[in-house]
Design a protein around this nucleic acid. Structure first.
Lengths: 198, 198
DNA sequence: CAAGATACATACTGGTCGGTATGCTCCATG
DNA sequence: CATGGAGCATACCGACCAGTATGTATCTTG
């Protein structure tokens, strides 16, 4: 039954994602994931050759996919680039509510924890960040060509900074465990974005 | 011999700091710390009642102390607030060289890893961040009073955003494992700071 | 000089971890 | 209808972990 096998795999990925999001990759317990899903260890190691490969799969499939839905797709809408950016950011702010905010950005969490000690994680995360940054850069460059974004800024540097600020805001909000702090940070970020208009 | 006892304690704190900085708190191995220092387990548990208490001590004494030297003291110099800020940031950028950059900001690392799962860590980190943010806020407020900083910005919100951006930049640079990326992010941050002048 | 406290050292424990060896059932295919 | 592989299930392994129990010098203090 191929369908059931896929369901098992997806169930493992989902549970692993949550476990990793909550405790980090290294502290994530395979036994806890198994207990949560009702899947046995034999099944897990049938689908993934190691804990590391499971972690990579969570990153490649679950996290990258969610980012696609939450960020890249909304960014491709037409309109004023700065407005589009602000909407995407506010949309993300609304998505990360309540409990989830205290767990932080899944991508940033993994970057912090794993990039220094495992190059497989690092490269995967780096390529996602690059993709993310370029999506902002493209938007800013388009804005400059259309005359809606100030030409005094460097699109690549600015895109990198916007992304860094975004992650920084979520990181601070995570530690403060407060949605207010996220909004506060977001407010300043939006104000900065406004200053980029032509 | 009280002097030797203090030396042992300091040696443990230093080694624990490095181990935690490299692997994170949870993955930090007490045995590795002991091996590195040549101290025995009996001695460690004489000075610290648990791994958690050792972690708190690293945060309270080592990390907070380093931040004091690297940040709070340079910030108390007179002069144009924005210039002071920029110098302090560039000074930090120079300090985090080579290998250290790939390990990230020790405070941010701990915040990301521990704030969601241990309130003792969270509260300690939160108070340090608050202190940090207030030191920037005070500077900005002084600048507004002196007429050197734009009065259209909210000092508290802006200070929070600057701090978040700073941490975000270091986080991105850590993952990219590149000092260039840190400088790139710093450039955009400095440009933002310049826009805050009156 | 006796006694208690300080500052360790050594050996060990129970528990959890990621990973593996083996065997089973089902099902598509020749 | 035999057979081999897919998709598991169960039991187990050695390594490592934080933490502890116990013993022992040394040093301070009455």
């Amino acid at each position: 039954m191929l369908a059931d096998a896929d369901a098992t795999r997806r169930s493992l990925l989902e549970a692993a994602y949550e476990e990793i999001h909550r405790f980090g990759f290294q502290a994530a317990s395979l036994n806890a994931i198994l207990e949560r899903t009702g899947v046995t260890k034999g099944a897990l190691y049938h689908h993934f050759s190691s804990k590391l490969q499971l972690g990579y799969a969570v990153l490649d499939e679950h996290i990258a996919g969610e980012l696609q839905r939450l960020w890249f797709e909304p960014l491709h809408q037409p309109g004023h680039p700065i407005d589009t950016l602000m909407e995407a950011i506010m949309h993300m702010g609304e998505h990360y509510q309540c409990e989830e905010i205290t767990l932080g950005c899944p991508l940033n969490n993994l970057a912090q924890e794993m990039s220094a000690i495992d190059d497989g994680f690092r490269q995967r995360i780096d390529s996602i960040y690059k993709h993310w940054q370029e999506s902002i850069e493209t938007l800013l460059t388009r804005g400059q060509q259309e005359g809606s974004v100030s030409t005094t800024i460097d699109p690549a540097d600015t895109a990198f900074f916007i992304l860094a600020s975004l992650e920084g805001c979520m990181s601070m909000a995570k530690n403060a465990q407060s949605h207010d702090e996220l909004m506060r940070c977001g407010k300043a970020l939006l104000s900065y974005l406004n200053s980029l208009r032509a």
